[in-house]
Structures are given as structure tokens and as C-alpha cells.
């Protein structure tokens, strides 16, 4: 029973944190007075933080996790890096040549 309650609590915390981080991102963009560059960094940081929250609270990734989980995370990081890095490279190159 307590196990189930701890589990429930973890999900609740995860849900609340995710909601807060999402709202924070919206707030930074909508609020006046936050510089564009700063806002982008904050949105990015909120996104990464939310990934961590969801891995921890919803997918139960922790220090006691198995090798498979590590594989999964490393592979995801690799692909996210390829996709995001590639996109930034491509789009900046395009942007630089749009005169």
C-alpha cells in the first residue's frame, strides 16, 4: 500500500513540475522585459529540466536502473544531438546566405 502511495506521489510531483516548467517557458516569452536571448536560454533550460523530471518521475530512471536504461538514454541523447545539432547547422547556414 505504501509502495503504491509513494508511486502515486511521484507521479503527482512529476505532473506538477512538468506543468510548472511548461508554464514558465510560456511566461518568459509572453512577459515583457525579458531579453530575447535570455528568454531562449530559459526556454531551453526549462525543456531540458522537464526531460529530467519525466525520466525520473514517470520512467523511474534512477541510480538503481539497469544497463538497458542507460543504453536508451545514451542513444536518445545521440539522436537528439544529431537532429538538433544538424538542424541548427543547416538553418544557420541557410540564414547566413539569405541576403
Amino acid at each position: 500500500m505504501t509502495d503504491a502511495r509513494a508511486e502515486m506521489r511521484r507521479y503527482a510531483i512529476g505532473a506538477i513540475l512538468s506543468a510548472v516548467l511548461t508554464l514558465a517557458a510560456f511566461w518568459v516569452v509572453l512577459a515583457d522585459g525579458v531579453a530575447r536571448g535570455t528568454a531562449l536560454w530559459i526556454v531551453g533550460a526549462a525543456g531540458v529540466a522537464q526531460i529530467a523530471v519525466q525520466l525520473r518521475c514517470f520512467l523511474h530512471i534512477g541510480s538503481a536502473s539497469k544497463r538497458e536504461d542507460l543504453h536508451l538514454i545514451l542513444f536518445s541523447a545521440l539522436l537528439a544531438g544529431l537532429m538538433i545539432g544538424g538542424t541548427i547547422w543547416i538553418m544557420t547556414s541557410l540564414h547566413g546566405r539569405m541576403h
Binding site: 547547422w89 543547416i90 547556414s93 541557410l94 547566413g96 546566405r97 539569405m98
Partner: peptide, 8 residues
């Protein structure tokens, strides 16, 4: 052919 640089 979308217009990015040759290096890409």
C-alpha cells in the same frame, strides 16, 4: 538545392 552552404 535548398540553399545552404556547400560545406553542409
Amino acid at each position: 538545392t535548398m540553399g545552404q552552404g556547400a560545406r553542409v
